[in-house]
Computed example of a mutant assay.
Amino acid sequence: MPSSWSPSLRFELQFTGENINLWGEKLNAVLQHADYAVAGWLTKPLSGPAALSTANAGDDEARAAMVKFTGGAGPFTVTIPPVSKSYLVWNACDGPVTLTTGAGATVTVDPGDILWIVTDGGAVKTPGYGGASIKDWVSSVAWSYNAGALPAQAGNAGKFVRTDGSSASWQSLSTSDLSDYAGAVKGLALAFAIAL
Rank of each mutant, 00 (worst) to 15 (best):
S86I: 14
P7W: 04
A152W: 14
Y36V: 14
A62Y: 11
G158Y: 03
S53N: 14
I194C: 10
I20T: 11
P75S: 06
A152F: 02
V83A: 00
P7M: 06
G183K: 03
V118K: 03
I20Y: 07
P81K: 09
W41D: 14
T77P: 05
A189V: 10
W23L: 00
G40H: 11
G71P: 05
A195V: 11
E18K: 04
K44M: 14
Y129W: 12
V124Y: 11
L178V: 07
A105P: 02
G187V: 01
G122C: 09
T70N: 01
P75T: 10
A168P: 10
V30M: 10
T79V: 15
S139F: 11
G148H: 00
E61Q: 12
A62C: 09
V107L: 08
F160D: 05
F160K: 10
S166E: 15
Y181Q: 11
S144P: 02
K125M: 15
S179Y: 15
K125S: 07
G155E: 06
N91D: 01
A193S: 04
G130T: 09
D136R: 08
T79Q: 15
A184K: 14
L196G: 13
T16M: 10
K159L: 12
F11H: 00
A39H: 10
S167R: 12
S4W: 14
T70E: 03
F192Y: 14
Y145N: 13
A142W: 00
K186S: 08
A37W: 06
K159P: 07
D164S: 04
T175K: 12
P81M: 08
V97H: 01
S86Q: 09
S84R: 10
G131H: 08
T126F: 11
V118N: 04
T163W: 13
G130Y: 09
A62V: 12
F15G: 15
L173M: 04
P151D: 10
M1E: 06
D177Y: 02
N91T: 01
V38F: 14
P111R: 15
G148V: 08
K186R: 08
V161T: 07
A37G: 04
D35W: 03
A193Q: 05
A157D: 10
L9P: 09
G72P: 02
S8W: 01
G122A: 15
L150G: 00
G58H: 13
A51E: 12
L99K: 01
N28R: 07
V118S: 08
D164R: 09
N146Y: 00
D164T: 06
D164G: 01
A55V: 08
A191L: 12
A92N: 12
A103I: 15
G24V: 15
E25W: 09
F160Y: 05
V124R: 15
A182D: 05
L13H: 09
F192V: 13
S167G: 10
V78K: 05
T126Y: 03
L178D: 04
A55K: 01
